[in-house]
Amino acid sequence: MKGNSLLFIVLAVLTFNLQYVQAQAGEGEKLSLDDGTISSQFDYVSKKSGNYRAEGVRYEVVKEAYLYKLRKNVLDSLNAANKKEAELNATISGHETTITSLNQKLKETTNNLASVTQEKDSMSFLGMSVSKVTYNLILWTIIAGLLLLLLLFIYKFRQSNILTQEAKTNLSELEVEYEDHRRNALEREQKISRRLQDEINKYKKTK
């Protein structure tokens, strides 16, 4: 009996020292469930988890409130990612419409150029008679401007597509991270439940 009491005291002292060391090590990190990344919030829950040993096996105990809070934060992050993805898709759709319009205008301008090159050297432009060289210079300047605008919108479209892919990748990683944590939490809960049932059965046998 005395040996068991001594063993219990030694385990309690070791557990206290371990928690104290963890607390000292975490003083430099301001972990919280109210801000920070999902990864840092998982670290917070891990650091706030209690632990004990029974028959040489270590068990982790997590407050149910922490799990609910962490679940809410993960869902909020997923919703934010979905909203961002929807916004990016809307932006991409707008850019595609603009590019289609610019392509049509460029095609019309090119057709007009082909037509005017077959006319006389002298032609009317905005009510003024100008030489063909001057007319072509003005027209090609407009085409160059349209091409630059087209290239700008193509660049914007590609940037939006990259952001969309990054958002999808982050969302997938977040879902995998959440699923791993949920599975680990469920496994710990099942282990604790089995251990509790074993203790209940032992207690019944001793009565």
Rank of each mutant, 00 (worst) to 15 (best):
D121H: 09
K83V: 01
D198E: 13
L126M: 03
L148H: 14
S160Y: 00
L126C: 01
N111L: 15
N170R: 14
Q190W: 14
N201F: 07
L163Q: 12
L163F: 13
F157Q: 15
T15F: 13
W140T: 13
K120G: 03
K204E: 02
V74F: 03
S122Y: 09
S46L: 03
E55H: 03
N73Q: 02
S101A: 00
K2E: 05
E108K: 08
N111E: 15
Q24Y: 14
I142Q: 05
Q197S: 09
Q197L: 14
N51R: 10
E55C: 00
L152S: 04
I38L: 06
Y44A: 03
K191F: 02
R188A: 05
F42P: 06
K84M: 15
L88S: 08
D34P: 09
V13W: 04
I200Y: 13
T91Q: 07
D35P: 04
L137K: 11
E85R: 07
S122A: 14
Q24V: 12
G3N: 14
N4V: 08
L174H: 07
E27V: 06
A185L: 05
T169H: 03
T37G: 01
D35I: 04
L152N: 04
K72G: 02
T134M: 01
A65L: 12
S172R: 04
A167D: 07
S160T: 03
E87D: 15
S46K: 07
Y52G: 04
A54F: 02
A167G: 08
L147Q: 05
T97K: 01
V116D: 06
S5V: 01
M128L: 04
N82G: 05
S122P: 08
E85F: 08
L137T: 05
K84Y: 14
V61D: 10
K47D: 13
E119L: 10
A86V: 09
E96P: 05
